[in-house]
């Protein structure tokens, strides 16, 4: 929760400005106070979930969990997949198929999700309310 609180204070101004759009925002943004991701952004972000987990949350897996990843790191990864500077199997073509705007929405969405704690799965099992 401390990371979330930290983000809250950082992003408070943004949230106040964005209050008009708040009702259209995702529920999780209300908690973590990231800039609101519109429904179209949610559309884009949810395409990742089949491999990278629901809302980016993943346990032990060959895939990278996206929940809690910083927006900068996510965007940089997608750009380097897209220009093939980062080798991949299928991420290169997929990254090229999404727009810059969608990648920014995805980045904001995953940054707003609580980061999983893969080394402490018993805690996560309880956090399902």
């Amino acid at each position: 929760m401390s990371a979330s609180t930290h983000r809250t204070s950082q992003r408070l101004g943004v949230v106040l400005v964005a209050a008009v759009c708040w009702l259209a925002a995702l529920p999780s943004q209300a908690e973590s106070a990231q800039p609101p991701v519109p429904e179209r952004g949610l559309m884009a972000a949810q395409t990742c979930a089949g491999c990278h987990g629901t809302q980016g949350e993943l346990g032990d897996s060959a895939f990278v969990p996206l929940a809690g990843m910083s927006a900068e790191r996510f965007t940089q990864a997608m750009r380097s997949f897209a220009d093939d500077s980062r080798p991949s199997t299928l991420m290169g073509p997929l990254a090229r198929a999404f727009t810059e705007q969608e990648i920014e929405w995805m980045a904001d969405y995953f940054a707003a999700q609580p980061a999983p704690a893969p080394l402490n799965r018993s805690d996560r099992e309880e956090d399902d309310s």
């Binding site: 089949g50 491999c51 897996s61 060959a62 895939f63 199997t89 290169g92 073509p93 997929l94 090229r96």
Partner: peptide
């Protein structure tokens, strides 16, 4: 966009695709 592994994909890319195939069964 390109949909498949390219003809000149590396052996590692085929092995990774197999690894991901099995990981995907669980994540999906």
């Amino acid at each position: 966009e390109q949909r498949f592994l390219p003809f000149d994909a590396t052996p590692m890319q085929y092995r990774l695709a197999a690894l991901y195939q099995h990981a995907w069964m669980q994540s999906f």
